[in-house]
Nucleic acid binder design. Structure first.
Length: 663
DNA sequence: GCAAGGTC
């Protein structure tokens, strides 16, 4: 019997073809590579995820002319997205009697399969179809799935379709409403969505907390004994601190002294979230994901979209380490292999879709771009780190007293580097204090009061935001970084850590007042519940979608106009331009400064022309921004590709104008 | 030009 197998992605098609058949031929049509077994007369075709896309019909495409109430009830159509694949499917459909859907075993996977099936059935009404369900592409799992073929789960696919429709209708209607109200059309439009808007609200509310934060002064008392010791209380007024200070004598006596060992566990294997968190030390999550994709396609790393933080037993961890023995990482590989015992770390999440992200081939530094190498190196080093031993710190805790006033001092020293030997991405901050004996009397060299301030909560770093989105179930591992990028390109957030702009404040405030539901993660939670009901057959897709449309129609009906957004039309944006990269704060006005280009390349203030701060940059060579910051100016250190020279552009300018040649 | 979700 002639047979077709459909998978969700190219890589899966290749692997499944090779597991099921032993006479696989690669065929090519246009840019599409697919597989054929002559002996079994079977084709295996990999899709590229969804091959069709939901959209509104053309008659609704004019934002100004379309009545939003009509748009709410408009029926979305499916638009062909992957035309080459669709053409190929139509051609093969005529040749085969049966198709097996072997897409990923999840909600979207079921719909992706159904999309392909509908294309096939459009050409060949009589085609038979079934479904292979597996949760890992291993020989065992695949053979098991193909000997127990099941039915396509239409309800599950419909639940995914409901999600698509609801997201489109709510997103499009509210996006247009907000954009029309503010008069921001064309490339300046403002967007709203089930995932992006709650995410933005989090950033806006954090920004507001920071704005409203009133720092409070407090005072702490320290004594210098050759090392520092701190009095455990904080004082709100200087007078009481001074009073305590005056009671301190000339000596302090050791009352307690303890030496402890503290284990700092090796890191867990990389899933997408963990990977993006760590990579965001080096570059934006979106860029990191793009590069990981690329490394994956070129065979250097495993599939970068995974939730799994536990290596499967079938993965030859030691073999992979060995492959690095004669590489750039030979020292690290030798270290890992030289340990008495090698035991991989494991995270909490164990899934079987894909293994944690790990290297799959040894790369040559010369074959990769600088950014690709940085990501590859991170993944290789992380992989080694998960197989290394724990790091061990020695902690010394001293409790002291002088005239009845208590002091405490804590020292920490890294005694065993362990995984830190191969994974040097975080700083080691050691504090040295001597070994003491109870009863020791130490001379107090200095006593002092330090004025401190309470700090506002921090802005979200890329890593913190991704982590929070994950916790709130906003977006998926594959989309979170794209959602953040969207918020940046809409002008809603900027900088690193992320800061909400006035645009974001205005939009979130209006939405909170008029359609609070779209600003809350609960909308996703509620939707998920309804989707489950569709999948279980308790509700129909049209019932759920209709209900959702009704709610939206009610909201739109009582929303009135969004007058407040009118002011946004002329809101001058202080956002850096598309190709400008922010590197820190302006020493003159406090706004952001960025690498800019006019006739020449330079660093200038994003508040130009209100602020005219600028310093020159070298004109030759690719400049890149390191993760380090200049201590004096708080500006990121820059480097020129191919040169070891690292510099703060402001320091460099000061040196140049002071007559000192940099280089 | 709209959303979010797959994948390249």
């Amino acid at each position: 019997m002639s047979w077709l197998i459909i998978t969700e992605k190219q890589k899966a098609a290749e692997r499944i073809a090779n597991i099921l058949f032993n006479d696989i031929k690669r065929l090519k049509k246009g840019n599409i590579v697919f597989f054929y077994s002559p002996s079994s007369n079977a084709y295996v075709i990999g899709l590229k995820g969804h091959i069709v896309e939901l959209d509104f019909p053309k008659e609704y495409s004019n934002w100004i002319k379309t009545d939003l109430n009509e748009l709410i009830n408009a029926k979305p159509i499916r638009v062909e997205k992957e035309k080459e694949i669709i053409t190929l499917l139509k051609e093969i459909a005529k040749k085969v009697e049966k198709v097996t859907i072997a897409t990923d075993y999840d909600r979207e996977g079921e719909l992706i399969g159904l999309e392909a099936l509908e294309v096939l059935r459009g050409v060949n009404r009589n085609i038979k179809f079934d479904r292979a369900r597996f949760s890992a592409i291993t020989r065992e799992e695949i053979l098991k799935a193909f000997s127990n073929l099941e039915k396509v789960d239409f309800n599950l696919a419909f639940s995914a379709l409901a999600r698509h429709e609801i997201d489109l209708v709510w997103g499009a209607v509210l996006t247009r409403l907000v954009s029309l109200s503010s008069g921001r059309l064309g490339k300046d439009f403002l967007s709203v969505g089930r995932v992006q808007t709650p995410t933005l609200r989090l950033i806006v509310e954090r920004e507001r907390e920071i704005e409203n934060f009133k720092p409070e002064k407090y005072y702490e008392i320290f004594i210098d004994l050759g090392f520092l010791a701190r009095h455990p209380s904080r004082y709100k007024d200087l007078e009481s601190a001074k009073k305590v200070l005056s009671q301190i004598g000339d000596f302090a006596t050791v009352k307690e002294f303890e030496v402890k060992r503290k284990i700092e566990s090796k890191p867990i294997p990389f899933n997408t979230t963990e990977f993006l968190r760590e990579a965001s030390r080096i570059m934006s999550p979106h860029r990191a994901m793009e590069i990981a994709e690329n490394l994956y396609i070129n065979g250097y790393i495993s599939y970068p979209r995974t939730d799994n933080t536990v290596y499967p037993e079938t993965l030859d961890l030691i073999g992979i380490v060995r492959s690095f023995l004669n590489s750039y990482f030979s020292k690290e590989a030798k270290y890992v292999l030289g340990q008495k015992k090698i035991e991989p770390s494991r995270g909490k999440k164990k899934t079987t879709d894909h293994p944690p992200i790990h290297p799959t081939a040894v790369a040559d530094k010369g074959n990769l771009t600088r950014e690709e190498w940085a990501i590859y190196e991170l993944i290789v080093r992380r992989f080694f780190a998960t197989l290394a031993s724990d790091a061990i710190w020695e902690i010394r805790v001293a409790e002291l007293e002088s005239n009845g006033i208590k002091f405490i001092s804590v020292g920490r020293k890294l005694v065993e580097l362990g995984w830190r030997k191969v994974y040097p991405y975080s700083n080691v901050e050691e504090v040295e204090i001597p070994v003491l004996k109870i009863g020791d009397k130490l001379r107090i060299r200095e006593k002092k009061i330090e004025e401190k301030k309470t700090k506002p909560p921090p802005r979200f770093t890329p890593s913190a935001l991704i982590k929070l989105m994950e916790r709130l179930n906003l977006g998926t591992k594959s989309t979170r970084h794209e959602i953040i990028k969207k918020l940046i390109s809409r002008g809603y957030i900027k900088g690193n850590p992320y800061r909400a702009t006035p645009l974001a404040f205005a939009v979130i405030d209006v939405l909170k007042e008029k359609v609070e539901t779209i600003t809350l993660p609960e909308m996703t939670a509620k939707l998920e519940k309804e989707l489950d009901e569709i999948a279980e057959g308790k509700k129909t897709k049209s019932e759920v979608v209709l209900g959702s449309r009704k709610i939206l129609a009610e909201i739109i009906g009582r929303m009135g106009n969004l007058e407040k957004l009118k002011a946004l039309k002329t809101l001058k944006s202080l956002e850096p331009g598309k190709n400008e990269k922010v590197i820190g704060k302006c020493p003159v006005c406090g706004k952001e400064i960025a690498i800019k280009r006019a006739r020449k390349r330079f660093v200038g203030c994003t508040n130009y022309p209100n602020c005219r701060f600028s310093v020159p940059l070298p004109q030759k060579g690719t400049i890149y921004i390191t993760s380090r910051t200049c201590e004096k100016h708080g500006v990121r250190i820059l480097k020129i590709r191919g040169s070891k020279w690292a510099f703060c552009p402001i320091c460099n300018y000061e040196n140049l104008s002071g007559g000192i040649q940099a280089q």
